[in-house]
Design a protein around this nucleic acid. Structure first.
Length: 547
DNA sequence: TCCCCTGGCACATTTGAATCGC
DNA sequence: AGCGATTCAAATGTGCCAGGGG
């Protein structure tokens, strides 16, 4: 099923970078600035490191509560944070190896939804996908020790429906279903964001899937948000207050008091726990799945049954999905169609592989409970270090490179996604990505770049940041249409011009933010600053490779 | 008319500077 | 003068809601 991507690179690369539809993604490596000479895989160790990385979703139970009710995330023009926020606990990293952690949010299917009769229903075909933007954790790159020391939080990630958003927020369409993903990329010592033979892995927690909205549709979600989000405490109020709110909302649903909500949560939690437990115990494997996007619309490939009784028309396996380039050819297809099950168990998935990399995520109930309380207290520390000083006070403060400044001149064209595919498998996905991208221009020709947003405070004294490296670091590569794979290496005309990053010799890759093109950004607060590396969304294809 | 989106509002938390005391 | 604790105001994050547009 998988096919070589950059056939001319190296055998090693060839065996790892493959498209999901069998079409070469980048027939001409020179377009990507890839070395034509064989790359000596120094990567056995790194691969093993990547493979051993485990990620646990923080506050998973809370996510499950929302998922059961049908998670909704408000998107606004100015950008809105996610709640629950995306936080993970990472283990299994090589303490001394540097990694880049980033997230992106991809369409979960190709449908547009509407909330009708107190449930989500398919309302038509999805609109063209928004520019693919990536949110790079502000601490990136940092050593494994740093990432494992505390909870890794992406709480400052913001969602927007502004297609021209200049702040680097992740752009989404309202009333569409999305799936956040976490990518862990091994960074080379000399090239923070890209190096040859570097591997990456992708983690997907299905309970984090959500439907983007401009205003909450499901009152259950509203209540959950109010109950759990500190910033919404003002709406908790008394029973009378709740009655008032419900009345004012003009909803035709029964008023649910705070206490009722609390009780409901408790009961639902138990119910959910039972379901999940059953699902896990019955061996719902982390399913390998794949789906393709055509013009920004994911195409369903197969049917799956959701283990959770999520209000979503079609939900996925409750467990974590692993994107792994080691998936087999008998990769299962992920059906994104609302009328079909989302996941499908793959008999072909190696049990060994599955359990090794997925079991711990699949069921915290079974093996890996995450100590949110313990690690949660560290979050502030991590962010503090990120926004003020790099891991000050820690033994490896010097391990962190200061967050690069953002250059906002790099914007993606508003082209719809060309066809691309995404595979989710039962294990960690990791893929070597070549470095040697002298500059963005080298990569641009054949590789549309999703934007990369680094939510950290821009710092002076920056070198240059090479978006190409980031792009390479991600499993997102242009995926030619099934019919014209390699030859069709999509191009992003404007990318070269937009890309203002270049690598400064001898210095770590750091972006330089340039807001000149966006006057409105002058009013942007420092806190709001984020680095945006736009990869033409378009582009985009998420490409899962096999090593 | 319905659905969706926008902007302003009130309320709460977070953040950082200013102040104070030791 | 230096450090830590406390205070306070501004910034920021929420959901609510009226109004507008398609």
């Amino acid at each position: 099923m998988l096919q070589e991507k950059a056939s001319a690179v190296t055998d090693d690369y060839m065996t790892r970078v493959q498209s999901t539809d069998g079409a070469p993604l980048a027939p001409d490596p020179s377009h990507l600035g890839l070395p034509t000479a064989p790359i000596t895989p120094s990567g056995n160790e790194s691969d093993q490191t990547i493979e051993s990385i485990k990620v646990a979703l923080h506050e998973r139970e809370l996510w499950k509560k929302f998922h059961e009710a049908g998670t909704e995330m408000i998107i606004t023009k100015a950008g809105r944070r996610m709640f629950p926020s995306y936080k993970v606990k990472v283990t299994g990293m090589n303490p001394k190896t540097k990694y880049i952690l980033l997230t992106d949010i991809i369409p979960a299917d190709d449908h547009r939804y509407k909330f009708c009769d107190n449930k989500w229903m398919v309302a038509g075909k999805a609109e063209p996908a928004m520019p693919g933007r990536l949110y790079v954790h502000p601490d990136s790159p940092a050593t494994g020790a740093h990432w494992m020391r505390q909870l890794v939080s992406f709480q400052k990630l913001k969602l927007t429906n502004n297609h021209l958003d200049p702040f680097g927020h992740i752009i989404l369409n309202s009333m569409h279903k999305y799936q956040p993903r976490l990518h862990i990329v091994k960074a080379d010592e000399n090239n923070a964001f890209g190096s040859k033979n570097t591997a990456y892995c992708t983690h997907v927690f299905h309970e984090t899937a959500f439907i983007s909205v401009t205003s909450y549709q499901n009152h259950k979600i509203t209540q959950l948000k109010i109950e759990n989000n500190p910033f919404a405490k003002g709406f908790r109020g008394s029973e009378e207050g709740e009655l008032r709110v419900s009345r004012l909302q003009g909803k035709d649903y029964p008023v649910i008091s705070k206490s009722m909500v609390r009780q409901r949560l408790i009961s639902s939690h138990g119910h959910l726990g039972g379901k999940l437990g059953a699902g896990v115990l019955t061996g719902h494997p982390q399913v390998l799945s794949s789906y393709q996007y055509d013009a920004g619309i994911p195409l369903s490939n197969s049917d799956h049954q959701d283990a959770l009784s999520s209000p979503f028309p079609q939900s996925r396996d409750p467990g974590l999905l692993y994107h792994c380039f080691k998936h087999r050819d008998n990769t299962m297809h992920l059906d994104l169609g609302c009328k079909r099950p989302y996941l499908e168990t793959s008999a072909g998935v190696s049990e060994e592989h599955y359990f090794r990399s997925a079991s711990s995520y699949e069921s915290p109930l079974l093996s890996h409970p995450y100590c949110s309380d313990t690690i949660g207290s560290r979050e502030a520390c991590m962010y503090g270090g990120m926004e003020t000083e790099p891991a000050s006070g820690t033994g490896d403060a010097d391990e962190l490179n200061p967050p690069p400044p953002l250059n906002c001149n790099v914007w993606a064209s508003m082209q719809p996604y060309p066809r691309y595919s995404v595979q989710t498998v039962d294990s960690v996905t990791y893929q070597p990505f070549t470095a040697h991208f002298p500059n963005a221009a080298t990569v641009a020709p054949g590789v549309p770049h999703p934007s990369v947003s680094i939510a950290s405070r821009p710092q002076p004294n920056l070198g240059v940041y090479n978006p190409a490296s980031v792009q390479q670091a991600l499993p997102i590569v242009p995926h030619s249409s099934s019919s014209s794979s390699s030859s069709s290496s999509p191009t992003v005309p404007g990318l070269r011009d937009r890309t203002l990053y270049s690598r400064k010799s001898g210095s770590p890759l750091r972006p330089h933010r340039d807001f000149s093109a966006y006057p409105s950004q002058s009013t942007m607060s420092i806190r709001e600053a984020s680095y945006q590396y736009q990869m033409g969304l378009s582009s985009t294809g998420t490409h899962w490779t096999d090593s």
